[in-house]
Design a protein around this nucleic acid. Structure first.
Lengths: 342, 342
DNA sequence: CTGAAAGCGCTAACAT
DNA sequence: ATGTTAGCGCTTTCAG
């Protein structure tokens, strides 16, 4: 069960040098004669020497890897963001370790602690919908662990953040529904305390207000049980359409909930479909195929993943402690059924 | 940048013990007096001691983590399989490190080598569509790295394997199309050398043969450029429908290709839709929403992930070298538009 | 320019 | 029952 059997020691022995000389030669230390360097390098190459990253991590307390925590990789937004993350990480010679919280705080804590103890050099995190108190993260951050938050962020931690313009995305979607002539626009969304929930709710309200429509609290439904169970969504749809004055349009604030709603509507209230308009955040790349159709608010997930990773690596590699943080906001795109997908 | 500052040494110093005593007390070594154990445990708890897994890995040459390599986490099959993998791994106290090959051999090699050098205790792999020569994997396996292959496997390595009954899945889907009255059934599939491609092709052929239909090589289209580019799929659809005798039914052998085909068909040959039947492997959980509809061949991805992980952990924890290997085959499920999804 | 030695955190013979 | 020591693979003072 031992690979990488080749160590620096083997090279040293074979070449009659000391391990320190070999080590220095390998990393091109300027104090080593070209002669020796050449010999060492060639031999290392020949026997296919690979430095042991574990030993390195133990020594240097870093690992050239970054940890990622998302709620669900099955969520299109996240899988696309992860692709963005990987694209810059690999270019900068970092490895990416992906973990899922499944929208649970306990899982999130477990993952974060595991990653931290494994000496990841930094963390990219989008909070689970249960994570309102994140003191555990804050303390890690205070101890110096570089963290960049994306998508679902919190003011509790002062660091770089990468988010979509949730307000505008929600505003645009809602206004689009209104422009279709709808006056009764419901809003189905995530756990109330999440940053994205608040921002999207504000955008929704603002669009209503701009067009002189009243805000009806009964038209807003928040996800409870982590917002990913279909039963919960079914229940919400039922409630909405059993109202005496049911909505004629729905704006949905999250990927999984959007598709869940489409299914629930098709299944439970198909008769309402003819004059129901739906818009929602989703990064599904098969949105063209959906029936009932949905106007998609699409986030530049790949770009956001890239940006977050660039910021993180910048943080990791910064010589002096960073005290100025930025929040990068990305525009969303409204894809109406007519719009061609790129 | 140092967390986990608390080491065994700190405890030893504070308690006036030696590090080895502390170490043994912590892991409940039977030679330690209950008295000492208690003191150590309590103090460790108090100062929130966490063993450093890196030091452990270096010492023990294992890490209680397993590496996963899939082509794309955005593929529904894989994200579901990963959930299955995680579910058993966490129960058995293993951590899961997920990586993507993006259907590229170079990425696959990079990931595997990184994981191996990071001392993962074992590997769960589904080959990329470029991976026909996998001697790099074989040599790792020969050196003793436990590997379980799932989904896309190869005979080049003798180990546990977990696959779907691809032959039967393909057979059923094709037969279903034939049962609809179709005689011209095309087949769009993956890279020719993949195990799943061969098996599914055989199933397709067998169904044709059973019903006395000729096998037409021109009706079979293989993925070239990793089968994930929409342009390639568009091209295939064009070719198929520009034939003088175009197909009236299509059986598609992979998740991403299935949805890609639906989009291509809708975009390029919408006029053909009225009398075209489509069936395909897909684990999309929004398949109900698709228009054009598709008869889905669904793999029990979650269960397959679980099974693969159980086999892997069994391999990892086996005292003596394992020489008997099994291949677990899982049934697929044919979900026709009428079938209710669970 | 090169080597000897210490140390990262932990465990496990081997003493005592 | 507890302590001493060596060592996992590597880097890095500190001495030549």
């Amino acid at each position: 069960m031992k690979f990488n059997t080749v160590t620096i020691k083997d090279i040293a022995k074979a070449l009659g040098l000391s391990t320190s000389t070999v080590s220095r030669a390998l990393r091109g230390g300027y104090e080593i004669s070209d002669e020796t360097k050449k010999v060492v390098l060639e031999y290392a190459e020949k026997i296919n020497y690979r430095p042991n990253p574990i030993a390195l991590s133990l020594k240097e307390r870093r690992s050239y890897s970054i940890g990622v925590i998302v709620s669900e990789i099955a969520n299109n937004y996240f899988s696309q963001a992860i692709n963005g993350i990987e694209s810059v990480a690999y270019n900068r010679d970092y490895h990416v370790i992906i973990t899922q919280s499944h929208e649970r705080l306990d899982r999130e804590v477990l993952n974060v602690e595991h990653l931290a103890s494994r000496s990841v050099d930094g963390l990219l995190i989008s909070l689970s919908s249960e994570s309102s108190d994140i003191s555990y993260l804050k303390s890690l951050h205070d101890q110096g662990l570089p963290i960049v938050m994306f998508d679902r962020v919190t003011e509790q931690i002062e660091t770089h953040k990468v988010i979509a313009d949730n307000f505008k995305g929600a505003f645009d979607a809602t206004e689009y529904l209104i422009s279709l002539g709808h006056k009764k626009v419901a809003h189905i969304t995530n756990a109330a305390h999440l940053s994205i929930t608040r921002e999207r709710l504000e955008g929704y309200k603002a669009a209503l207000e701009k067009h002189g429509l009243p805000f009806n609290e009964d038209y807003v439904k928040y996800g409870k049980y982590r917002g990913i169970e279909q039963e919960e969504i079914d229940q919400v749809i039922k409630e909405l359409f059993e109202m005496e004055d049911p909505p004629k349009a729905i704006f949905i604030a999250q990927d999984k909930i959007s598709t869940g709603c489409l299914m629930a509507i098709k299944k439970l209230v198909p008769h309402c479909l003819s004059d129901l308009a739906i818009a929602g955040f989703t990064n599904a790349n098969v949105v063209d195929l959906f029936m009932p159709g949905i106007t998609a608010v699409r986030q530049p997930a790949f770009e956001m993943g890239k940006a977050a990773t660039e910021l993180l690596i910048q943080l990791i590699e910064s010589k002096r402690p960073v005290t100025e943080f930025e929040t990068r906001v990305f525009n969303t795109e409204l894809i109406t059924p007519g719009t061609v997908l790129i």
